[in-house]
């Protein structure tokens, strides 16, 4: 009896499993075609010299050795870390502030939400062109505002650090996406907690620090990891606004990878760069995850 029921249950389970797999099969096919296969292929190609056209030549670890001695890799890592170290934390703060603003209990809140989210739907491509005009030394808004406070006109894009800072500022216009996630997190925090705190005499700031922040921590972790991952892959802005210049000041890691692959046709080396970025990103995400376990509170209910 028991055995028969188990077989029956097993069959049913298996049928369910197959049905389930069938339902997600478009994803499985897409994933294997466009993610898994290229990933494995990149890893294999990273051990070859490969132009994309001629047969690959086996190089062993040479691409990886070159990667650690190439001064431009060092430079691009520095640029990328500079960007990520500024853009990610600033982005978190700004998106939490945006989420708080979107969360106000006023009648016209939907208007605020739309207005605050709107800049995030502008593609980076278009935003780059807008920023080129905004920071123009002669007729740009930024320089004319700064000029009122006596700051001399300057072409920020012609300075290696200035150009990176411009791109950090530009990234903040995309904070709306992260803000939506924070907003969802804020909606999940029970109001009774605030009411109780208020009765106990807690201030606004106290409520924010002791209730809002700890209960938002899963969303913060999520936005931190996606932010870091996005920050490490910064590319478009540099491609459009500065072409990696001046003096390699905005030669970000992804941009250098792109150049190796498509300007210099060194796909093997570019793949080795990609594999290193993947490993670095993975280690960083694991570290963040491990480190966050002490701070993240999944107990909103």
């Amino acid at each position: 009896m028991v055995a028969g029921r188990s077989i029956y249950a097993g069959k049913r389970e298996r049928a369910h499993l197959l049905k389930g797999l069938l339902f997600i099969s478009p994803w499985i096919v897409g994933f294997s075609f466009f993610v898994l296969y290229p990933t494995i292929y990149s890893f294999v190609i990273s051990f070859f010299r490969y132009s994309g056209i001629q047969p690959p030549v086996w190089l062993g670890w040479q691409n990886y050795i070159r990667l650690f001695t190439d001064p431009l890799v060092g430079m691009s890592v520095q640029n990328t870390l500079f960007y990520a170290a500024l853009a990610v934390p600033i982005g978190l703060i700004i998106s939490i502030l945006l989420a708080l603003a979107m969360h106000r209990e006023v009648k016209e809140v939907s208007l605020y939400r739309t207005a605050l989210y709107l800049p995030s739907i502008i593609p980076v491509f278009a935003l780059s062109f807008i920023f080129i005009v905004l920071i123009n030394p002669q007729y740009g808004l930024v320089n004319s505002l700064l000029g009122r406070f006596g700051v001399p006109q300057m072409d920020y894009l012609s300075d290696p650090t200035g150009a990176k800072v411009v791109m950090v500022v530009m990234a903040q216009l995309g904070a709306g996406n992260a803000a939506l996630i924070f907003l969802a997190g804020l909606n999940g925090i029970p109001k009774t907690l605030y009411e109780a705190a208020r009765i106990d005499g807690s201030s606004h700031l106290g409520c924010f620090l002791r209730i809002t922040l700890p209960l938002l921590s899963p969303a913060i972790l999520f936005n931190l990891i996606t932010g870091v991952s996005g920050g490490l892959q910064v590319f478009q802005q540099a491609y459009i606004m500065t072409a990696g210049g001046p003096a390699n000041g905005t030669l970000f890691y992804m941009y250098y990878l792109y150049r190796n692959a498509f300007s210099y046709a060194q796909l093997g080396y570019a793949c080795a760069l990609a594999v290193m970025l993947f490993l670095f990103g993975l280690v960083l995400a694991l570290l963040l995850y491990w480190f966050s376990q002490r701070f993240v509170n999944y107990d909103a209910s």
Binding site: F129, I132, Q138, M154, D155, L157, S158, D159
Partner: peptide
Amino acid sequence: NYQRVATFLATYLPPN
């Protein structure tokens, strides 16, 4: 003065 020339170029020969 390179910076001043860069400012001049961004003004009179903006990118694109």
